[in-house]
């Protein structure tokens, strides 16, 4: 049973347990289940995007435009529902679709235009956040305060709870399951891996790799749209600068989750565990009285250590294997 679970995910899980013990000892309130479950609110947006950016990274690309799609969808939700006066649920769907459209633009240019993913999504990042700012500027809404006055039903999305479980946790689980099934249980998921391992080979074996790559960006855009709506609901106002500082955490979560930045290897489970680690670390450090500004030190260190020493790096694993087998040979 145990050896069926990938080793890296096991390590991540142990890391979560260690984190809980350490932070719990610093401040016993950390062991309070309600507080822990509510802390999901703070990182659910990062996790949602992380799940689908994982798919993009597995195909060998990267998507950094998600951070500004958050702001764009937030603004669109606010404008459509509060300024234009459309039904809130319809405007949510419109906003998420706009997120998907942004992802589609990225994907088409990357897959069919043969441009590096990093550049296009960088341009997209500027463009989408720019559009969000323009929308705010044109519609004469205060940039600083944002658009507020949402209905209670809308704020229930992120702040409500079902049977004692906060909605954020439920959202986290739902998005995780969708991503998991897509990536690990369908033919589509196998195609994503094959595209990432070797695009030419995949192309020759009859996979429409361009379509696959485009679709991952669309999914990533849609997820960023959902994250934007969730954040708007959680914070109660629509602003264009939401998610601006999420770039680091999203990439950290994906890489820490064991997904190779060069593509072809990784999984959603690791991303989910890594996002929980990151989220709990933030809460734990806050409870232990450490300023949130110092979290970068922990995540940066964690990133380097995990990639360098803890088995994500294929070279290192190869070395370890060689050392171990040598020892066995000597012993026998």
């Amino acid at each position: 049973m145990l050896n069926k679970i990938p080793k890296w995910n096991l390590t991540l899980f142990i890391l979560i347990v260690v984190e809980m013990i350490v932070f719990g000892m610093m401040n016993p309130r950390f062991w309070n289940v309600t507080i822990l479950l509510n802390s999901f609110n703070d990182f659910v947006a990062i996790a949602i995007i992380g799940f689908f950016v994982t798919l993009v990274v597995i195909t060998g690309g990267i998507d950094i435009s998600g951070v500004s799609i958050i702001g764009l969808t937030s603004v669109i939700t606010g404008l459509l529902s509060q300024v234009v006066g459309i039904n809130i649920w319809v405007s949510i769907i419109c906003a998420i679709l706009v997120g998907g459209l942004c992802g589609f633009l990225n994907g088409v240019l990357i897959a069919y235009g043969r441009v590096q993913a990093m550049i296009i999504t960088l341009g997209g990042m500027l463009l989408y956040s720019g559009i969000a700012i323009v929308l705010v500027g044109v519609s004469d809404v205060s940039t600083y305060e944002g658009i507020s006055g949402f209905s209670e039903g809308f704020s229930w999305i992120a702040n409500g709870e079902v049977m004692g479980i906060p909605n954020a946790v439920i959202l986290f689980i739902i998005m995780f399951i969708i991503a998991y099934i897509l990536l690990h249980r369908t033919k589509y998921g196998r195609y994503i891996y094959l595209t990432g391992i070797n695009q030419n080979t995949a192309e020759y074996s009859g996979i429409d790799t361009k379509k696959i790559i485009t679709s991952t960006y669309v999914l990533s855009g849609l997820s960023a749209g959902i994250a934007g709506v969730v954040l708007t609901s959680y914070l109660g106002s629509a602003r264009s600068d939401y998610g601006a500082e999420y770039l680091m955490p999203i990439l950290t979560v994906v890489v820490l989750g064991g997904t190779l930045i060069t593509g072809g290897k990784g999984g959603v489970v690791g991303t989910a565990l890594a996002s929980i680690i990151l989220g709990f670390m933030q809460i734990g450090l806050q409870m232990a009285g450490v300023s949130t500004q110092y979290i970068g030190l922990a995540t940066g260190g964690l990133l380097i250590v995990s990639v360098a020493f803890l088995g994500i790096n294929p070279d290192f694993r190869f070395n370890v294997k060689r050392i171990i087998t040598q020892k066995q040979n000597n012993g026998g």
Binding site: I62, M248, V255, I261, Q293, G300, V307, A308, N313
Partner: peptide, 25 residues
């Protein structure tokens, strides 16, 4: 990090970005 630890430049510099920000604070 790039040469000895064989980390890809993107991740290594990303990590250092967040570390240097904290050191500045």
């Amino acid at each position: 990090g790039l040469i000895k630890l064989k980390i890809s430049s993107f991740i290594m510099t990303l990590a250092l970005l967040s570390i240097t920000r904290v050191v500045q604070v």
